[in-house]
Simulated scan of single mutants.
Amino acid sequence: MHDHDQGLAIDIETMMRRRALRWLAVAGAAPVALLGCGGGGDNAGSTTSGTGSSGGSSGSGSSSGSCTVIPGETAGPYPGDGTNTNSGGVVNALTLSGIVRSDIRTSVAGANGTAEGVPLTVTLKLVNAGASCAGLEGYAIYLWHCTREGGYSLYSNGVTEQNFLRGVQVTDADGEVRFTTIFPGCYSGRWPHMHFEIYPSLASATSGNNDVKTSQLALPAAACSEVYGTASGYSASVSSFAAVSLASDNVFSDDGAATQLATVSGDVTSGFEASLTVGISA
């Protein structure tokens, strides 16, 4: 069985719960805390993290008008944030020495692997949707995603001893963080994406239980088609990408990724740049 098969089933269950809760909210029901997804794959255990509760702003930068709160999403079965396990026990990349870094292509804390792939720079701008989209300074954002082959460090076969493609950055005065990474692969049943968790401060970014928002970033079709169709090492993504769409993806299908689809520029030769404005209520 593929490493992701069990995780997809749990993602679907989580998505259905989230849809039901949104319907209840429209009907006037009281807010209900969302649960995180369970574990998945041969090396993953159960996840106990939720989307977290709102935290206070650590500061604010420039205002840019109106914006929308990004949907809370499942962390999936491979968060590596201390809320679930692999075959060796609890997995927590957040406590690793060196995890606070902008270039996440290599492993840290004694592991020496490097994730190969098309270069990609990711800029996330965290804004306060309740205050004219002012940039939020001093928040910590933990970003993680799969390799070009579709596996997750710490969990997937062949990379359980690695912790690359995971890292934490603190938002600057404009609410921005910037990661240097590689374009992720596409695996069966999921649109190409990245995961991230938002914490009210770097000091609180030690467990997924402390986050104020968990969500996902979707990559646009044109960039995915170019990478998977021309770059070496992505052959496994071709058939998986051909079989999925934003409308069929079990995470992005409910709102079409309207607030989660990144803007991407660049090419395979020189690399890509992706950016996304992330609105939260702070």
Rank of each mutant, 00 (worst) to 15 (best):
E149H: 12
A258P: 01
T74Y: 04
G150C: 04
T51D: 04
S188A: 08
S240D: 15
P220Q: 05
G138T: 11
I10H: 12
A257N: 03
G279D: 02
A243S: 15
E197N: 13
G38S: 04
L94V: 13
L165I: 14
G56D: 14
A205Q: 06
H193K: 04
G38N: 07
F183E: 03
D249Q: 03
F252P: 12
L261Q: 08
Y187K: 01
V32T: 14
S54F: 03
G61M: 09
A242Q: 15
G89S: 11
L246S: 12
T147F: 06
A20R: 15
L124Y: 04
S275Y: 02
V264N: 00
P220W: 07
R22I: 14
K213C: 04
S97A: 14
I182Q: 07
D3Q: 13
A218T: 01
T114K: 06
A247G: 10
S235W: 00
V122H: 03
T48M: 11
R22P: 05
A75I: 13
A231S: 06
D11I: 15
A44G: 15
A243I: 12
L261I: 06
L202H: 06
G175I: 01
M16Q: 13
R18I: 07
P192E: 07
S204P: 07
L120N: 03
L126T: 13
G61P: 07
Y139G: 12
E13T: 15
D211F: 00
L217Q: 02
M194R: 10
V127P: 09
L94D: 03
G88W: 07
T121C: 11
G110F: 01
A129L: 09
R148T: 06
L94G: 05
A134L: 05
G130R: 12
G52L: 11
G135I: 08
A231P: 05
H195L: 05
T83N: 03
L261Y: 00
M194S: 05
S240W: 09
A111R: 13
A75T: 15
R101W: 03
T47W: 00
V118Q: 05
T277Y: 00
S235H: 02
W144L: 11
G117E: 05
P200N: 11
I99W: 07
V26H: 14
G271Q: 01
D172E: 00
E137I: 10
G175S: 08
G28N: 07
L202Q: 08
L24T: 09
T214M: 01
A203F: 03
S156W: 08
A131Y: 01
Q6Y: 09
R101V: 01
G36I: 05
S253N: 15
F179S: 05
T263E: 10
V227I: 06
H193F: 05
T206Q: 04
V212A: 10
S201V: 10
E161V: 11
T68H: 06
N210F: 06
A20L: 12
G28L: 10
N210R: 02
G52P: 08
S87H: 04
Y152C: 03
L261T: 11
F164Y: 15
S239C: 13
S207G: 09
A247R: 13
I12F: 03
G256D: 04
V122Y: 00
G256M: 02
G233R: 04
T83E: 06
G76I: 07
S132F: 03
P71I: 00
A258F: 01
V168W: 05
A115T: 13
N157H: 06
P184Q: 02
F196W: 11
T171M: 01
S49H: 08
I70Y: 00
F252S: 00
A111V: 11
